[in-house]
Simulated assay, not measured.
Amino acid sequence: MEPIDFWEPTEETVDNFSELQSLLEEVFAKGPKRGRTFAWRGQLNAEWPLTSSLYRRLKLALERNPEERDLYNFEGKILANVHRWGLHMSKTQGRLSVLNQLATMQHYGAPTRMIDVSFNPWIGIWFAVEQRFDNGNVLYVNEDARVFAIDVTDSLINANDQYRSWEDELKRPWRVGHPWSKSCSPDEGGDKEQYLEWCTKPFAWRPAHFDNRIAAQNGGFVLGGAPLSYGPGNRPNQWPRDGGGYWTMDEVRDSTSISVHPNRLKSKGRVSSSAVYSIRIRAAAKEKIRKRLQTLFGYEHRTLYPDFAGFAQFGTAKIKNL
Rank of each mutant, 00 (worst) to 15 (best):
E188P: 02
D168C: 00
V152R: 08
I157L: 11
D134I: 02
F148H: 10
A208R: 12
P179W: 04
G177Y: 08
F148A: 08
Y140T: 03
G189Q: 13
R164M: 05
E169T: 02
R164V: 15
L139R: 15
K182Y: 08
T153E: 10
W205T: 05
H178F: 11
D154T: 10
E193W: 02
H178W: 02
I214K: 05
K182E: 11
A145E: 07
I150G: 06
Q131R: 14
R164W: 03
R175F: 14
L196N: 02
K201Y: 01
A145T: 01
K201C: 07
S165T: 13
N160K: 12
D151L: 07
P202C: 11
W205V: 13
E143A: 14
I157P: 03
N135S: 07
R132M: 02
D161G: 05
D191F: 14
L139I: 04
R175V: 15
K171P: 00
A208S: 12
Q162Y: 11
V129G: 05
R164N: 04
P207L: 11
K192S: 10
D144H: 11
L139T: 05
Q162E: 15
K192H: 09
L196V: 01
G190M: 10
E169F: 14
Y195P: 01
Y140V: 02
Y163S: 09
N142Y: 05
P202W: 09
A159P: 00
N160A: 06
S165V: 04
W205E: 01
H178K: 12
W205C: 03
N158P: 00
I150V: 15
P202S: 10
D191Q: 07
T153V: 10
G177N: 00
W205N: 09
W198C: 08
D187T: 14
H178C: 01
L170D: 02
P186R: 15
C184T: 09
A149C: 10
P202D: 06
C199Q: 00
P179G: 03
C184S: 14
E197H: 10
D211T: 02
R213Q: 10
G190S: 12
E188Q: 11
P202G: 06
S181K: 10
Q194I: 08
V138S: 07
W180P: 00
V141A: 08
Q131M: 03
V176D: 15
Y195N: 01
S181G: 03
V147R: 10
D191N: 15
W198T: 12
D187R: 09
F203T: 01
P202M: 08
D154P: 03
R146F: 04
D161T: 11
